[in-house]
Amino acid sequence: MGLELSIFIDYGPRILVGFWLTIKIVVLAIAIGLPLGVFLALARRSRLALLRFAATAFIEVFRNTPFIIQVFLIYYVLPFYGLRLPAEQVGVLALAAFGSAYFAEVIRGGIEAMPAGQLESAHAIGMSETQAMRYVVLPQAVGVILPPLTNQMLSLIKESAILSTITVQEMTMTALRIQGETFRPFEAFIMIALLYWLLNEVVAIGMRRLERGLTRKTPRSTTLKVEGGR
């Protein structure tokens, strides 16, 4: 069977609609997940043992289970406790929760990569815990954190494909529909694969630029590695 180019033209617009939803979902998930991740990272260093334990448990649980089952569980648990949300919103929540666990680990790694004397000198001069974080630790951690943080954001783009399993009409779901209608799976899936790939590269390049802009002043050589999702 040859390549049916008309599929790209006929169904391209529908794919783009799905593509747009994918982007929206990922951006929302990052907007929720990143602050949550910062909170979890700080909670893991809290004085309160209970908060520390809760944050650690949350992070470990989300990092050590497949995203697809997290999605299904959240999808069924919310209505179980009376909270009925559209699939899209469930998807954003699930992706944000999943992302926050990985973001937290990246941020914690960045904080811990810092020499202990930095935090100590901030305390010694009279800064509170929050001030020390805000003015001394986090600004320095940004340069170390940004590359692995970018990887986590990229992995959220990829994981968002899994939301098709709970009927979110994002790009992968759209492709599944189109292949069901046309029986042209190659065209449908290669189209979205290329779009995911493109998005991935664009974000990666953009973040590398941003990183260079932010860290130009203070070169740093430390690198961090944290594995994300697929």
């Binding site: 799976p185 899936f189 694969a193 590269e201």
Partner: peptide
């Protein structure tokens, strides 16, 4: 750069077609 799920679909749905 692409989701594993899409890679799985590509192989699973496309292999019988070819």
């Amino acid at each position: 750069g692409t989701p594993l799920l899409v890679q799985i679909f590509l192989i699973f749905y496309v292999s019988p077609v070819i």
